[in-house]
């Protein structure tokens, strides 16, 4: 792990605010340790900008261990960069070569307006969950945890879907900027578990309607979301959402 370093150029999107016109600026990133994470590389560039009294590049980040879903940018045309199943904070500079120019862009989607530079507003995801991504149980109403057994397979499948971190890479990667994978993952998690069943029909309709209202596109089965997802959420969640939707679409008891 001893100190190998590389020199890079980064071509990064700068945009002062939601209504401003953005443009690319290019900066040198010198003596970057190959053991640094991508965000640490951005820290180094930002420190340098600060030293020259320039405003650093704004980017969202928090846990830096791949679970909070806060970070994300399109790096060289790929959401979260070149390493599969990896968030931007867990991407390390050893994946790049000395002399590379790296293009860094924010998530681009009508549903995710740009706040500043690489920071986007993902509150649309919260509103999709508000539309129905919950079980209507109040604190204190719950029966004993063992009152309803859940088959292991169902619990495991629910967990696969629930692993979503809400980072938005699926939207960013989709040619249609569709939020289907995000929406479908929550619908699937709750459809797999008996606790989610009483509301499953109204849930799928309300969440899909909200997804549309937020201005996301539809799913044309490009599978780009699955390829970009740092948690490897599968397109089969969308299959499942569609199945749930069909059951609810014509159902008289919605």
């Amino acid at each position: 792990m001893a100190g190998k370093t590389i020199n890079l150029k980064i071509k990064v999107w700068r945009q002062a605010g939601p209504e401003s016109k953005g443009e690319f600026e290019t900066y040198d990133a010198k003596n970057i340790s190959v053991d640094a994470s991508f965000l640490e590389m951005l820290d180094v560039v930002n420190n340098q900008l600060e030293r020259h009294d320039k405003e650093p590049v704004a980017f969202d980040h928090d846990c830096r261990e791949g679970i909070c879903g806060m970070c994300g940018a399109v790096v060289n045309g790929v959401a979260h960069g070149p390493q599969t199943a990896t968030t931007l904070c867990q991407l390390h500079m050893r994946k790049f070569k000395d002399g590379d120019t790296i293009t860094i862009e924010p998530w681009r989607a009508k549903g995710f307006p740009i706040v500043k530079d690489l920071v986007v507003d993902r509150s649309a995801f919260d509103r999709i969950i508000q539309a129905g991504g919950f079980v209507s149980v109040r604190t204190g109403q719950a029966p004993d945890a063992h009152a309803i057994p859940v088959p292991k397979k169902a619990a495991d499948e629910a967990m696969d879907a629930a692993a979503c971190i809400g980072c938005g890479a699926c939207v960013a990667a989709c040619p249609n900027a569709s939020a289907s994978l995000f929406t479908a993952a929550k619908i699937t998690q709750l459809a797999k578990l008996p606790q989610g069943h009483p509301e499953r029909k109204t849930r799928v309709i309300a969440m899909v309607q909200q997804m549309d209202k937020e201005g996301f596109g539809s799913c044309s089965k490009h599978y780009e979301c699955e390829a970009a997802c740092p948690k490897e959420i599968k397109v089969s969640n969308i299959t499942n959402m569609n199945r749930e939707y069909m059951k609810a679409m014509l159902s008289p008891d919605v």
């Binding site: 057994p149 619990a155 629930a162 606790q195």
Partner: peptide, 16 residues
């Protein structure tokens, strides 16, 4: 109890 009712997918055994 509360978390299970909310749909938290805790690990389970084969008996459910």
């Amino acid at each position: 109890d509360q978390c299970v009712a909310q749909g938290v997918p805790f690990a389970r055994e084969y008996g459910g």
